[in-house]
Design a protein around this nucleic acid. Structure first.
Length: 269
DNA sequence: ATGGTAGCACGGCTA
């Protein structure tokens, strides 16, 4: 059972690259971020013709998430709870039946948070993008607390837009004041782990040099000047079933790539 | 110091 996350940076621009990856990696479930498409304009045939069920949560121009699954998707929920005024499409979840137990899949595109704007007291400026990021992370924490209380296997994966540790960036000093690496962002991410979630990739692979995003500019991929910001977090019941977790760098090296590359977790049954 | 790249959609924002 392979479950993948891929920030595709525009589903319409990625038809060839995404199709190629689905054929080669053949994930059972793929959560997609930054589809940059409405539900109505999503090129569904790209996914469905390959035998996937598809649930989308899109918006025009920006953001947007989706779940593709070879098995049926049930109990689909769109939007992260906790703020009815939030119109950004960044969260979708659904249940996938497996041979052993049901898996809750939560796909997310966490706000970038730049530019970082702070008030005179050093706290995030209300209404700013950094404050929105941190507020979204607080809502995420609340949703994860509820998932943990259910004591069922849940996989919460996507583009977290957080560099957890210095070893997760080729040049951490370049990110020091960035919303992806600010202490507030890292602390909020750590709070999620401290609830009892596991970072699937770090359960299997320690050390520096493992990235999921390389900027389009400055030959960043050729120089492996990347950051690890796409993560697969597991409830304890999901971690019990983890077999491995790998970053698939092949799509980033291909033609007309996304600036992210997929991360894939494999589970028993 | 500036400009370097990309997507959406066709102007400017987002990353």
């Amino acid at each position: 059972m392979k479950i993948a996350s891929f920030n595709i940076n525009g589903v319409k621009a990625r038809a060839e690259a995404l199709g190629r990856w689905l054929d080669e990696a053949a994930p059972d479930v793929a959560v997609l971020q930054e589809i940059k498409s409405t539900d109505e304009t999503f090129p569904r045939a790209l996914i469905e013709d390959r035998g996937y069920n598809l649930e989308t949560h899109g918006q025009k121009g920006f953001n947007g998430v989706a779940i593709a699954s070879k098995r049926p998707l049930e109990d689909v929920r769109r939007g992260l709870p906790g703020d009815d005024a939030d119109t950004q499409a960044r969260w979708i979840e659904a249940t996938v039946a497996t041979d052993s137990a049901a898996l809750r899949i939560c796909g997310l595109y966490l706000p970038n948070g730049n530019p970082v704007e702070l008030g005179d007291d050093g706290t995030p400026k209300p209404g700013g993008k950094f404050a929105y990021k941190l507020a979204w992370m607080a809502r995420l924490e609340a949703r994860i607390r509820a998932l943990l209380a259910e004591e069922t296997p849940a996989v919460i994966l996507g583009d977290y837009n957080v560099i957890p540790q210095p070893e997760d960036a080729a040049r951490p000093e370049a990110w020091r004041d960035d919303a992806l690496f600010r202490p507030e962002s890292r602390a909020a991410f750590r709070r999620l782990l401290n609830l009892g979630l596991s970072d699937a990739f770090r359960l299997r692979q320690p050390g520096p040099g493992h990235y999921t995003f390389w900027d389009y500019q400055g030959r960043a991929f050729d120089n492996n000047n990347g950051i690890r910001i796409d993560h697969v977090l597991l409830t304890p019941q999901a971690a019990d079933r983890l077999e491995d977790c790998t970053i698939d760098t092949a799509p980033r090296a291909g033609a007309k790539p996304s600036d992210h590359t997929p991360i894939i977790a494999r589970f028993a049954a």
